[in-house]
């Protein structure tokens, strides 16, 4: 019985914190699919199209069974203008809606020159809008907290960024010697240093299976050639978001995780007990960190 309980206790963190992507929550309306900054890339456009098909903001056609009846057309309701709520301070945010299901701990925490309190945001788009308004060279430290995968990190179900997006967003905004932290699983490569830590080995095995083997066979089933699939996923599975971003933000210390990062606070029950189920920063993270300045590895 004791062994069984221990097994259950040890399993729950993996279930709660598995670094795979959170299934994105579909936006409620097509208006929600538009990023707050108004810029839409191809992914946004595809998402917008999908939502326009099913969302309430789209024209609704009610075709009656009989052709004698007139086709009803209801015009789209006016979109609510999204307002940027003030940043949350103190590391944790309150739930925005009483009955809304919590999306767990995620967010962006920004330390700005001349401010004792960090700026904390639950939503990535709100943080991005706030960063664009900040003066040049004002950020001393910034942390993106959410789910990660090789080459990119999500902040909330509707906002993710890769090295290009992070570079474009933060270019010129970082103070000299500033720090950027990607707190998400596998946001750095596994590296080439030999380690005897079995947890690191297990994490690397899982990473290879998740981000090479499974997508490789999926591509093969979809008809992609073996060479093409292998070449593509060999490049993808070990991408280093932290290193790539550090090359785009010269002089900034950029850190990520070489492994899956286990956050004890995100355990079901623990987050409720500590009242940090909607925290914007993770507290303790069990994982191996890697830091880079201008693409060169430095001590974390």
């Amino acid at each position: 019985m004791g062994k069984f309980l221990a097994l259950l206790l040890l399993l729950s963190p993996a279930a709660a914190l598995a670094g795979g992507e959170e299934q994105p929550r579909p936006p409620a309306t097509s208006a929600d699919a538009i990023p707050a900054d108004g810029e839409m890339n191809m992914e946004d456009l595809a998402e917008f199209y999908d939502n326009a098909r099913s969302g309430s903001g789209a024209p609704e056609m009610d075709i009656a069974p009989s052709r004698a009846q007139a086709i009803k057309y209801s015009a789209p309701e006016p979109k609510a203008v999204p307002s940027t709520p003030p940043p949350v301070t103190g590391g944790a945010a309150k739930a925005s809606g009483g009955d809304e299901k919590s999306t767990g701990g995620h967010g962006v925490t920004i330390q700005v020159i001349g401010s004792a309190q960090p700026l904390a945001f639950r939503r990535g788009a709100e943080a991005a809008a706030a960063i664009r308004r900040l003066p040049a060279g004002s950020i001393t430290s910034i942390e993106f907290y959410g789910h990660g995968a090789p080459g990119y990190q999500t902040v909330d179900p509707d906002y993710s960024l890769g090295s290009d997006e992070a570079g474009d967003l933060l270019r010129g905004k970082m103070a000299p010697g500033a720090k950027l932290q990607f707190t998400g699983c596998n946001t750095a490569s596994i590296g080439d240093r030999m380690r005897i830590n079995p947890a690191f080995g297990l994490s690397s095995i899982t990473r290879r299976v998740l981000y090479f083997s499974i997508p490789y066979f999926q591509d093969r089933l979809d008809g992609r050639s073996a060479e093409e699939a292998r070449e593509f996923w060999e490049r993808e599975w070990n991408k280093d978001l932290a290193q790539e971003t550090s090359l785009r933000l010269r002089g900034t210390r950029v850190c990520g995780y070489r492994t899956f990062g286990l956050v004890p606070e995100r355990l079901p029950g623990v987050s409720h007990l500590t009242g940090r189920n909607e925290a914007t920063s993770p507290g303790y993270v069990a994982g191996i960190k890697a830091c880079y300045i201008n693409g060169v590895e430095v001590e974390p």
């Binding site: 993996a14 598995a18 297990l202 499974i214």
Partner: peptide, 22 residues
Amino acid sequence: FWCGILAILMILVFILNYKGVI
């Protein structure tokens, strides 16, 4: 013995989570 069992279960949980099953 138990670490090995846990390792296998953990990999399964990560994969199922990645596939959106859990």
